[in-house]
Amino acid sequence: MKHPIRERPEKRWKIQGITPDFRLYGVWDLPTPGGPDDFPRLVRLFAAGDTGDNPSRIARLLFAIRWKLGALLHWDGADDGVGRRVPTLRDRLPADLLAAPSGPAFARLPFTPVYLLGDEFAAEMANRTVHGVLHLRWVEGGTGSHHGQMAVLVKPNGPLGRTYMAAITPFRHLLVYPPLLRGIGQEWRDGAGQA
């Protein structure tokens, strides 16, 4: 389930304090029911992910087209990434987050971990179009059960980034995220990310 484009009031997440210049593009409840200590499993599941694993053929095709366009238009070069075109968000972290582990490296996705806490994880990516943040959190469902949430925060890079985000929004919300969320739920039920 997607939440409105605003933070939910029940908790202030650390990511909010370090990304005031980013726009929140959405928050999704993940079909990952679990106990209070299952958050590391969710983080491992995401870190091992791959756009080629999306259960939707259409979503896989859209990702393949995006990676091809990025290569042709030179959107994803090394000079356009975190630490090159944009400074890493780790440069913004307060002392308590700097002392925390950054989290696991991503095997195949272009994300760099920023910080990992017991119920919150942030990873960033940058290219010529945007500087983006994948934010995972572990929330209580009200009955003692817990589940993950995924938030996407984006800082577009000028007119190109704003145009790019406007162009992909309908595809993301209609064709990419619904099967992605179903796939995450299936992987969770199948035991992916368990130590």
Rank of each mutant, 00 (worst) to 15 (best):
L180F: 13
F171W: 10
Y164D: 01
V176W: 03
H147G: 08
K2F: 11
R137D: 10
H147Y: 11
E10I: 06
A64L: 09
G49Q: 09
T51C: 12
K68N: 14
L153G: 06
T19H: 01
R189K: 15
P40D: 07
L69V: 11
L73Q: 10
V133H: 10
T129K: 13
F171P: 00
P20D: 03
T129E: 01
K14D: 14
L62E: 01
R57G: 15
R6H: 12
R60P: 08
W138G: 04
V130M: 11
W138F: 02
K68G: 14
A48C: 13
P20C: 08
P179C: 06
P101Y: 04
G35F: 06
R12N: 12
R137H: 07
P9A: 12
G185S: 04
R137G: 13
L42K: 05
G118P: 10
R162N: 10
I18S: 03
Y177E: 12
E7S: 06
P104Q: 08
A166T: 13
A100Y: 08
T129H: 13
G52C: 09
L109H: 07
L93F: 06
R12S: 14
P55Q: 11
T51S: 13
R92H: 06
N54R: 13
L134G: 08
E7C: 02
R84Q: 05
V43C: 02
